[in-house]
Design a protein around this nucleic acid. Sequence first.
DNA 1: CACAATAAAGAGCAGTGCTCTTGATTTGTC
DNA 2: GACAAATCAAGAGCACTGCTCTTTATTGTG
Lengths: 228, 228
Amino acid sequence: MPSTPRERARVDTMRRILESGNRQLAEQGAAALSLRAVARDLGMVSSAVYRYVPSRDDLLTALITEGYRDVAQVAESAAAGRAAPGRRFVALCEAIYGWAREHPHRYALIFGSPVPGYRAPQDTITDAARTPAAAIQLIETAWAAGELDDPESPPASAGLRRQAKELRTALGTQLPEAVLLRFAAAWTQVFGVISFDLFGQFVGSFEPGDAVCAFTFRTAARTIGFRD
Amino acid sequence: MPSTPRERARVDTMRRILESGNRQLAEQGAAALSLRAVARDLGMVSSAVYRYVPSRDDLLTALITEGYRDVAQVAESAAAGRAAPGRRFVALCEAIYGWAREHPHRYALIFGSPVPGYRAPQDTITDAARTPAAAIQLIETAWAAGELDDPESPPASAGLRRQAKELRTALGTQLPEAVLLRFAAAWTQVFGVISFDLFGQFVGSFEPGDAVCAFTFRTAARTIGFRD
DNA sequence: CACAATAAAGAGCAGTGCTCTTGATTTGTC
DNA sequence: GACAAATCAAGAGCACTGCTCTTTATTGTG
């Protein structure tokens, strides 16, 4: 469909802009991402880039979306296989962790402090939901097979139970609300420990952080109710 | 000791610079923090600020240190009292959460993605350690009173056990290494859920996030071994 | 071929961090 | 009290940023 050579040149330039942006991101971080640098990198004038990307924030959005898709793909392929769901959950966590260590700036862009004045558009949410969805599917597998324990949980407030119920219908899952709550607590644990490691909060205590991450991933799995 | 009026003027100007910087931080975030804006705010010329603050990053460092002290003070006073250690731990978490919601930009500055090119100097670590130290003291209190449960933990690797042992001597605590590991896993959970809420990761699921935070704090307390 | 759509270029505005020099003021000492 | 020394505010300037505008060149199509 991209018949005309002009159009082909356009999509190619667009792809090169995204590539260069990702390079900038990986090398110097989000704050150093500048359209001028992208233009320099590509050997074109800065104003020309604005024909492809409306603004710097839009370039950031494009890179964020790409990052969400990337990490989701990594997580999904790690969750595949025939191993026990609990082991696959830990593998999923380790896959996210590996991706994060490989692309710390992209991880920070997605799961770190939001860039001020930037509001993630709605369509990023669907991509963002893919990763937790992969984890939830593992939980469902274990639950359907009756392999999910039911560890004692703290009491949930009425408001929280309502939120969980709404989420249950929104996800279209059969899982009990209590499991969803435990998943939420465990999920924040997974990203909490990854962020602690990547953002330097373990400096002076658990360094390097891969061991404490692995331990925490297993702790999170137990929190959910996975065996083994 | 504030002898000379020149010196008094200097410390006063320094204090006003920090105040203005904190205002900028609260209103527009770390990325928007500019020495020129501080100078404008204070009615002085931009170059004059450089006589007080060597660079923008140094101003950031000063604000970070102040933030660490602030949150530590909030946590410590929340941990005080005669209630059961478990309840005080949850109160400590809630206090951190409250502080974070009150000062989201300062929280992001401290616990969010690190600003690129910025390396936290060593003396911030001592202030940073105060908050977890307050939590650990609660654990010690419960443990000394024999009120700390010993929930089953996943196995820890040899490297992790060594790190825990080193941390144990560094902290000068009597707590078993297994408890320290559980604390690490729980601590990341606490900050994980706070960050999820503040950084917008709960959009579309648990919104508002105070209920899931409260639930997760209690889950973290159980992970450590607190009763009730 | 001619015309319209599109791309690239360049200039320019307002902002940033930071450095340097210049002149003014205050300070401690003789 | 006078004077050199230390300190300060101010301004100009450099290189960079995001972004907008106008002008020129290129391309595809009627």
